[in-house]
């Protein structure tokens, strides 16, 4: 199952690494990734597509726990991604 996510967070030097470590460790592969800082480097906005056999909520709940993460949104899952392609 492919899932398209956005993550809003307060930026810190290691935040991207921290997020991606959780994605990998919890059993998800990154297929696309875009990261940009906003508000004078204060915040980090991440858009990513991940693939896994596992339920996406297993990942989103872990991401939401990370200190500094303010919002995790699941935009679409496989069927919708295909339909829009």
């Amino acid at each position: 199952m492919k899932s398209q996510l956005t993550i809003e967070s307060q930026n810190s030097p290691e935040l991207l690494e921290r997020l991606l470590r959780v994605v990998r460790h919890r059993g998800f592969n990154v297929q696309t990734l875009q990261a940009e800082t906003t508000d004078n480097e204060q915040n980090l906005h991440l858009s990513l597509t991940v693939y896994s056999e596992r339920e996406i909520s297993l990942l989103t709940k872990q991401l939401e726990k990370i200190f500094g993460v303010t919002k995790v949104s699941l935009l679409a899952q496989q069927a919708e991604i295909k339909a829009s392609a």
Partner: peptide, 16 residues
Amino acid sequence: VLGLSLACTKHSFMVQ
């Protein structure tokens, strides 16, 4: 150590 700690702490800080 910040990098090493990512998998084994609830959170970690480096004071800059």
